[in-house]
Amino acid sequence: MLFRQLEYLVALSREHHFARAAQACSVSQPALSEAIRKLEDELDVPLVRRGRKYEGLTPEGERIVVWAQRILADRDALRDEVGALRCGLSGRMRIGSVPTASAAVSLLTGPFCTEHPLVTVEVIADLQSEDILRQLQNFEIDAGITYLPEELSGHFQAIPLYEERYVLLITAADGLAHQSTATWAEAARLPLCLLNESMQGRRVLDDVFAKAGAKPVPRVETDSVAALFAHVRTGRWASVVPHAWLHVFGVPHGMRAVPLVEPDWTVPVGLVTTSQQPGSVMARALTEVATETDVAGALERLPGGPALPLA
């Protein structure tokens, strides 16, 4: 059995198509198909349901893919470990993040890259929490920054980074702009631009609005936090944004960020990695950086300005 055969099987499971899997592995389709057939012969089980086109993996194939992902991840971890012992950590680290938490990622990647100058970091910042946990378990990413559930599966370990809370972003001309706080019910009555309903950040907002006995009816929805700021800037809309993004954008001229109350609501955000040992050397290195970095404190400071919250 060769690592290459396992790589081909994992690619086929991910792409659901022989031609795309072959392209992802930079081989011809016949070469990929033949390698998987040889793997089936070696294991003496059918791995792929074959018809006129790819019809998925067999139950045995699904189980073998899990082992293949684990074996390949251990191989990569071994290479990274040996490389780190020889000349310092090098290679590529992959971080997944929920969109609303991506503002905090740079607070970790900055010191990480300073400490490990030979490592390249890839950040995927448009994932949902369930995507992050799935990709961690499938060894597709090394670490994730996401909302922390009350109970996390034993397959994972987490380091809390900060408590996400929300502010009402409005123009300075709005009547609520002169208040020290605004209620969620007051926010729901404004013409709102919010994240779209498919995003976990929006589902969190809807839950909080419901606790306040309110139901917002946004006129504009988007999958971009930056787009929320852009829409408020036009003067036609208000929005509810995570306070962490004020650390990136500040409070733009002509706008106000008013803390939301009734209820006072926060959601824990943390760095999640797999609990498998010895695990990814990249994940261990990032975890060390996270334990030494005051992410929460940094997010309370506006760029070049005072601490949050602002009104």
Rank of each mutant, 00 (worst) to 15 (best):
S97R: 04
L107E: 07
Q128Y: 01
F139D: 11
L127D: 02
T114S: 13
D131C: 04
V105C: 10
A101W: 01
V121C: 09
P99I: 12
S97I: 05
Q135G: 00
I132G: 01
V105D: 06
S129N: 11
R134N: 03
R134V: 01
S97Y: 05
V98E: 10
P117A: 10
D131T: 06
G96R: 04
F112R: 05
S129Q: 11
T109C: 08
F139A: 14
I141K: 03
A101N: 07
Q135H: 09
D126I: 00
S106P: 00
A143D: 05
F112H: 08
L118N: 13
A103E: 11
P99A: 12
A143Q: 07
A101L: 07
R134K: 12
L133N: 01
V119A: 04
V123D: 05
G110A: 13
L108C: 07
T114L: 14
G96T: 06
T120E: 15
E130I: 08
T100A: 13
L107Q: 09
D126L: 04
L118R: 15
I124H: 10
F112E: 05
T114Q: 14
A104G: 12
G110C: 03
E115V: 02
V121G: 09
G144K: 04
A104S: 15
S102E: 13
E122C: 00
R134I: 00
F112A: 05
T109R: 04
F112W: 11
G110F: 03
I124G: 00
G96S: 12
H116K: 03
F139L: 00
L118C: 07
P111T: 08
I132D: 03
E140D: 14
S106V: 09
E122P: 00
C113S: 15
C113T: 15
F139C: 11
V105F: 07
A101C: 11
S97P: 03
L127K: 08
D131G: 07
E122F: 05
L107S: 05
E115I: 00
V121T: 15
C113R: 15
A125E: 13
R134Y: 00
L107P: 04
V123H: 06
S129P: 12
D126N: 14
I141G: 02
P117K: 08
T120Q: 14
A103G: 13
S97G: 02
P111Q: 09
H116R: 03
G96K: 05
P111V: 09
E115C: 06
S102K: 09
I124T: 12
